[in-house]
Design a binder for these strands. Structure first.
Length: 458
RNA sequence: GGCGACGUGGCCAAGUGGUUUAAGGCGGAGGUCUGCAAAACCUCUAUUCGGCGGUUCGAAUCCGCCCGUCGCCUCCA
């Protein structure tokens, strides 16, 4: 039985989907800049969740949106002096480049706000009809007081929040905590026609509308970063439940932790220290980045530190070399390593609220067991197959790290390797070592196994 | 001010009442293998879980206080 921690109830709960298909919605990105490693963290975690659910024989429909109408996009368009559509197009492509590079599978549906405008407007109309929203000067606001449950996710209560929000308040709202569902048009901003006049949707309504459209009015899992709990997810719950009358809107709310940067501060865009995914991928393999993330539990706050990614790169080599063992590499043997207990450990760990550090520990232990068994003349090809299976569930590619562009060509390396081979055959060790040093300097490492010499770029 | 998270070895990080005197990874030390290396394997690397009290037959795990770090309450994965 899979158990997941539900932010709404603050407990781990047995996961029981409503229907025969898991309906999962994950808050996507606002496309106004390149993706940073925080996005990578969230994407990888919910990628692993979807992969694991499928591994456990669930059918999964995952919806992840693009917010392509937003203040930050408008501002970016202004500062770049281009139409806002160009900004969103550019960064949607950039997002895909990053996410593909990280071997994150695409969601089943990836809706954009601009493409689901009729549903958004329709949902706002429903909210007005049921008394949960009101129009004011061409804008529409959600009436927070209409919902006694408001605040249940974040543990906030309206009065306390208001104390904190003293100061600038939009005039005319019934309650300062009421939030915009529809924003009346301002000069030079994207706009759509609506029953309340031209304007654009508020931030929160899109997710409710898209979840309703693509998944239905009650869903199994809703995911996103911890920072979205308030106000975004709180508002999403309020809107969705007011409109549909179905409670809860999402059975399980899952929130991933925030990246920490080395000096202890949160990594946030406003600090301007975002670490670009594409930049990271130039230096580290997607597997190293994934391992670095999955070695912490998804609800913790991993340290963003290049050293740790480098450590993960080295760790990956162990797993990769174990996974690379195929039937041909195996010594003829009657005895075969039975890896069932490792598979059970893996599943047990993942069932327990996606405990990837424990699941990885099972894989590392299995790799060690395989190496040990191999020297004992035991057939480990089935175990290697299991390593491939389990690492696949975690989304690893098992591909070697990116090749350094500079340096020697393959043929040049081969020539040097042959040169060294000759030297070794004649026991001219100094010459052989000189070649090895030369290769090493060019970022190529060598290993002599049996009669053969293997080389790889590091 | 309100809501919340966290503090485990040199670094990262599981574990949340007994089979854990604490998994796994990285790093380090020694060894096997090797011409020497690399990789791999073996052994070692926290009697201890921020501090102080308490509950309990028994706590890193529960309770209280204190110290420290961080997040949310405004846009953020």
């Amino acid at each position: 039985m899979i158990q997941l921690y539900n932010s709404l109830t603050r407990t781990k709960e047995d996961f029981v989907p409503i229907g025969d298909e898991v309906k999962m919605y994950v808050c996507g990105v606002t496309v106004y800049d390149d993706s940073h490693l925080g996005h990578a963290l969230s994407s990888i975690i919910f990628d692993v969740l979807a992969r694991y659910l499928e591994y456990r024989d669930y059918r999964v429909k995952k919806v992840q949106n693009f917010t392509d109408v937003d203040d930050k996009i408008i501002n970016r368009a202004k500062s770049d002096g281009v139409p806002w559509e160009e900004i969103t197009e550019r960064y949607i492509n950039s997002f895909y480049e990053s996410i593909d590079g990280l071997n994150v599978r695409r969601a089943t549906v990836e809706p954009r706000v601009t493409e689901d405008m009729p549903e958004i407007i329709g949902l706002i109309e429903r909210l007005i009809d049921c008394g949960s929203a009101y129009e004011l000067n061409g804008s529409v606001y959600y009436r927070v007081r209409s919902n006694p449950d408001y605040g249940k996710l974040s543990g906030q209560n309206i009065d306390q929040m208001l104390e904190a929000t003293r100061g600038e308040l939009e005039s005319g709202k019934e309650n300062p905590a009421d939030f915009a569902l529809w924003k009346a048009v301002k000069p030079d901003e994207p706009m759509w026609e609506s029953p309340w006049g031209p304007g654009r949707p508020g931030w929160h309504i899109e997710c409710s509308a898209m979840a309703f459209k693509h998944l239905g009015e009650q869903i199994d899992i809703h995911g996103g970063g911890l920072d979205l709990i308030f106000p975004h997810h709180e508002n999403e719950i309020a809107q969705s439940e007011s409109a549909s009358g179905r409670v809860p809107f999402a059975r399980v709310w899952m929130h991933n932790g925030m990246l920490r940067i080395s000096n202890g501060q949160e990594m946030s865009k406003s600090l301007g220290n975002a670490f670009n995914v594409k930049t990271a991928l130039k230096e580290f393999s997607p597997d190293a980045i994934r391992l670095w993330i999955l070695q912490s539990h998804y609800r913790s706050n991993p340290l963003l530190d290049k050293k740790l990614m480098g450590d993960a790169e080295r760790s990956m080599r162990r797993i990769r070399s174990a996974a690379e063992i195929t039937a041909e590499d195996v010594i003829e043997s009657e005895k075969s390593l039975n890896a069932d207990s490792y598979k059970r450990r893996f599943i047990e760990a993942m069932d327990d609220d996606l405990n990837t550090p424990q699941a990885l520990a099972a894989i590392f232990d299995l790799c060690r067991k395989m190496n040990r068994s191999r020297t004992d003349g035991i057939d480990v090809s089935d175990a290697a197959e299991l390593v491939r299976e389990l690492t696949g569930v975690l989304g690893f590619t098992l591909e070697a790290p990116p090749k350094k562009a500079e340096g020697l060509t393959d043929t040049a390396v081969e020539a040097l390797v042959q040169q060294r081979k000759a030297a070794r055959a004649e026991k001219r060790w100094a010459d052989a070592d000189a070649v090895r040093d030369q290769l090493d300097a060019a970022g190529i490492s060598i290993s002599d196994t049996g009669g053969e010499t293997a080389w790889s770029r590091s």
